[in-house]
């Protein structure tokens, strides 16, 4: 991997971190409405995973989607503008935090009903198979989604039809405030894939290089015709489920323990230890990331609200109410 690519990935992680921190502030100022689910702590998961995809590979995820959007190449500007509901947002202010997407960048959302996007992911892959494209669909979801029926219907269908899907469970240890052990019959989530005779593996989600390496291997196997595979990525969200989370279900000590494994810190140490980048260079990337996010905040705040006539646009492609 080239140095520039490392620095790019590092910068993406820092942009996500700062963007999320700034979003939390904007939320507290009442500038972001609805729900806000932060990705802080999980940056290495999607950054490593999506760095392993080729342009033809589709990405689809759940509602904790800001980081995934950045990794798919959406600008911080259009992400933040969408969070603020502005006309310049990637969905013109109609989607909000949980519904980011840019199909031109092969990022298919941003889906807020837990587990519902898994059958859709199977369909994206079906579309590729039908049209004889060699794309792999990367479908990300939380541990909580593996307890709903859609998960099982989608995994089964993908295996029966040999669809090119990489199922990625981001196990951040909690479905909202309920631990995996309290909600799932098996706490090692990947074992559920055994029920569909599906190749599966797990990886440490705090270490971007491990995530990337595993994802590269699995995506290329799927592209070569292995059929769907399942990857469990163990991670931890440093913040609450959403901004309204009282966090009664976990101790500060547990959070602190995980924070010692900060994915950005781990990557920093790796880059310096391997002499890929100096501390100064990484500080420079931090500075650039801050500038990118501050520019995005300014852009979003100064962007116009959607025009009133947008209300009735895009209900249908063709005429009709």
């Amino acid at each position: 991997m080239e140095k520039s690519e490392h620095l790019n990935l590092y910068q993406q992680m820092v942009v996500i971190r700062i963007l999320e921190e700034r979003s939390a502030e904007l939320y507290q100022q009442g500038k972001i409405g609805g729900f806000l689910h932060l990705y802080i702590g999980q940056e290495a998961v999607s950054t490593g995973l999506i760095s392993a995809r080729k342009p033809q590979d589709r990405v689809i995820t759940a509602y904790r989607d800001h980081g995934v959007a950045i990794n798919c190449g959406l600008s911080a500007r259009e992400v933040l503008a969408e969070l603020l509901g502005k006309a310049t947002g990637v969905s013109g202010g109609k989607g909000g935090s949980m519904h980011l997407a840019d199909v031109n960048k092969n990022f298919w959302g941003g889906h807020a009903i837990v587990g519902a996007h898994l059958p859709i992911a199977a369909g994206l892959a079906l579309g590729d198979v039908y049209q004889k494209q060699d794309g792999v669909t990367i479908c990300m979801f939380g541990d909580g989604a593996t307890n709903i029926g859609y998960f099982h219907e989608a995994l089964n269908l993908s295996k029966v039809w040999k669809l090119p899907v990489l199922w990625v469970c981001e196990n951040n240890q909690y479905g909202m405030g309920t631990t995996v052990e309290r909600a799932s019959a098996v706490s090692e989530i990947r074992l559920k894939a055994d029920g569909y005779a599906m190749k599966n593996d797990n990886v440490d989600g705090m270490d971007i290089m491990k995530v990337r390496e595993k994802a590269l291997e699995m995506i290329e196997e799927i592209r070569s015709g292995s059929g769907p595979q399942f990857l469990e990525i163990n991670t931890y969200r440093f913040r609450g489920h959403s901004m309204g989370d009282p966090e009664r279900y976990r101790q500060q000590e547990e959070i602190r323990k995980w924070q010692e494994n900060d994915p950005i810190g781990i990557y920093r140490k790796y880059l310096m230890k391997q002499k890929i980048a100096s501390e100064e260079e990484l500080n420079e990337e931090d500075k650039k990331a801050t500038e990118i996010v501050e520019d995005a905040v300014h852009f979003a705040e100064s962007s116009p609200e959607p025009a009133a006539e947008e209300l009735f646009k895009n209900i249908y492609v063709e005429e009709g109410r």
């Binding site: 199909v103 059958p119 859709i120 199977a122 892959a125 079906l126 579309g127 590729d128």
Partner: peptide, 12 residues
């Protein structure tokens, strides 16, 4: 799975 995957396929 039928409707969900049909939606996904239609999106492509």
């Amino acid at each position: 799975a039928i409707i969900g995957s049909a939606i996904g396929a239609a999106m492509t």
